[in-house]
Amino acid sequence: MSFQQQGLNFSSKEEIKESFISGRKCEVQAIYDGHTVIIPGVLEYIEQTDVPTGDSIAIYPSQSFSQYMITTLKDYTRQLVQALNVHGMISIQFVISDKQICLKKVSPYISRIIPFLSKITGVSMVEMAVTSILGEKISEETDHLLLPVSSNTVYVQAPAFSLTSSEVLDCYSNQKMKSTGAVMSTDIKLEKALDKAFQSTNVKVPEFGAILFAVNDKDKETALSLAQRFFDVGFTIVATQKTAAFFTKFGLNVRQIDSLFDATSEEEGLEQINHDDIQIIVYTAQEEGSDSHRYKIKRKAVEQGVTIFTSLDTLAVVLKVIQSRTFSTKEL
């Protein structure tokens, strides 16, 4: 049965996309009793669609979506919920790509994000959902209770990973969620809330040192922009051969090292990291080296306390935290 047969009225006639769409993720929660649709909140995720939501950083309220976009997301959510006619809690994931809203997934159950929203609002959403499932009506007046206590406050939920779990280290082995928990932080500024979250999950955010880039061709332009900003706050930029050549072409001062995965052993690859005082590794070049070699390099790096990022979106918010702590340096 098509969406249009169910009474949904989207602006585009093409609701199903067969190709993979990359963009910003968001999640909308709804509670439905057959008459009233209550929407506890619209959450924005930092990482894009290739990272599971359970491994992504969630922000509430959204810091980048326009009010028109949020209103549209809520409108689409109401249409979907009423068309599906599922009583209780429904979680709907959307992807925002080129200012277009694409439906990703509808889950007719309570999402892991509900405890986060319940703590923000002080309202037991599980109790509301169970009440609606049992046939009782939800008061429309409940909607105003689901707003944040302070509109000036930013709330962050960040995934926590067990460093004893070897599976965590290789983000390209599969698309399964790898986080083992989550933490919640809050502040009046997004950067401060993120900083608290990183500290709580033992993610080291160094303020100086060297940062190593080894990225895919498709990521090089974005990585270049990030590398320039890291350079501006005092980091030394190190890169593998192809990445260094790209950075140098655009005038960035970069020190080149051999590919980590050309070394005859993972110990030799790690020696290069220690020799250059590298504090952060940015790695999206999953086509380089064997799976076994990449895995061993990553594991050794984690054991040595070197932070590894495989998502440029996560790296961008880490940079915001560093910038909030430090001063930029530019030649006069």
Rank of each mutant, 00 (worst) to 15 (best):
E287F: 14
A160Y: 00
D219Y: 04
I273Q: 01
V86L: 12
H87G: 09
G269M: 14
R24C: 03
V156I: 07
S185T: 02
I90A: 06
A223V: 04
Q199N: 07
V156R: 03
K13H: 12
E191T: 11
E288S: 11
F235S: 00
Q79N: 13
Q63F: 04
Q29G: 07
S292Q: 13
T153M: 15
I46A: 04
R229K: 12
S132P: 11
L270R: 06
Q241N: 15
Q67K: 15
V306Q: 00
T71F: 08
E207K: 15
I16V: 12
G34W: 14
Q79I: 13
V215R: 09
I120C: 02
E167H: 02
C102I: 07
F198K: 07
L212N: 00
S2T: 11
K300W: 11
D313A: 13
I188N: 13
A245G: 10
V183R: 01
F116G: 00
I39D: 03
T284R: 10
K74P: 08
T201K: 07
L8W: 08
L84I: 12
K300M: 12
I46S: 00
E136T: 12
K192A: 13
E267I: 11
K176F: 13
S179T: 00
L252P: 07
S64H: 09
S111P: 08
Q82E: 11
F261G: 05
Y172T: 07
S151Y: 15
G181H: 00
P61M: 08
N9F: 10
S97R: 04
K105C: 14
L226Q: 02
V149W: 15
Q6D: 11
A158E: 03
V302E: 14
S11D: 02
Q100R: 10
A285T: 03
L332V: 08
L163D: 05
D75W: 09
K99Y: 13
T49M: 05
K330M: 06
D276K: 10
Q272M: 14
L194F: 02
N152K: 15
I57M: 10
G305A: 10
A285Y: 08
P159A: 06
Q29K: 02
P61D: 09
D170C: 11
V149Q: 14
T49C: 12
E14N: 12
M128Y: 10
E288Q: 14
F198N: 00
N174T: 02
S132T: 11
T180W: 07
A30W: 00
A30K: 08
L103R: 03
L169R: 02
H275V: 14
K74W: 06
I114A: 03
Q199T: 06
A263I: 06
S11H: 07
R24N: 01
T121V: 09
